[in-house]
């Protein structure tokens, strides 16, 4: 099937088998291997990407469902010589070890900042209607869909906290 995706700002036409996931379109057809495959079942978060601004697991969605959609993958954030604030914070804080979950963590955090800005509550929010606190517990809860077997969670949280403002978080920070 012929579909058009806007990937990292550029229109990409692909002719694909309808069984192809959004993740596999990136990895196998568009040479964008930054999005990782850890499980192919929506269980690990390694394939997290933004679709029309919202974070999703690319492995759980068929590409043909996204004709005309705007996709941002890790390759759309920064280059090795020109890192985005969040990417630089991951390097600074050792927010990884093997690096395999890392693109997913970073894309997930991007999506999460936006969810804070929109006032979405989470499982650990005390008040579902109040503006959520950008607290460590909120970050941990909202990032718990992204597994890191290297267990770099302390560095991941630190990177996310450190670069929040530069990444456009407008939600107030928790009074520690």
């Amino acid at each position: 099937m012929q579909i058009t995706l806007t990937v990292n700002g550029a229109a990409r036409e692909v002719d694909i088998d309808p069984r192809t996931t959004l993740l596999d379109v990136m990895r196998h057809h568009l040479d964008l291997t930054g999005s990782k495959k850890g499980c192919d079942h929506g269980q690990c978060g390694a394939c997290t990407m933004l679709v029309n601004g919202r974070r999703i697991n690319g492995c759980l969605s068929l590409a043909v469902m996204h004709d005309g959609d705007e996709i941002t993958t890790i390759e759309g954030l920064g280059d090795p010589g020109n890192l985005s604030p969040l990417q630089a914070a991951f390097v600074r804080n050792d927010g990884y070890q093997c690096g395999y979950c890392t693109p997913g963590q970073i894309m997930s955090a991007k999506g999460m900042y936006d969810e804070f800005n929109k006032g979405w509550p989470s499982h650990v929010s005390d008040d579902l209607t109040a503006e959520p606190n950008f607290s460590t517990a909120e970050i941990k809860e909202r990032m718990s869909g992204n597994l890191c077997r290297c267990s770099a969670y302390p560095g991941i949280c630190k990177a996310i906290e450190e670069s929040a403002e530069e990444e456009g978080l407008t939600t107030r920070k928790a009074a520690e």
Binding site: T33, K36, I74, E75, D79, L83, A88, R92, D94, G99
Partner: peptide, 21 residues
């Protein structure tokens, strides 16, 4: 000292086995 390969990892440019063609 931050890892020298860090920038490749955080940009998705570090290639793992399945990512070669």
């Amino acid at each position: 000292m931050p890892r020298p390969e860090g920038p490749l990892k955080v940009t998705g440019r570090a290639p793992y086995a399945a990512e070669y063609k």
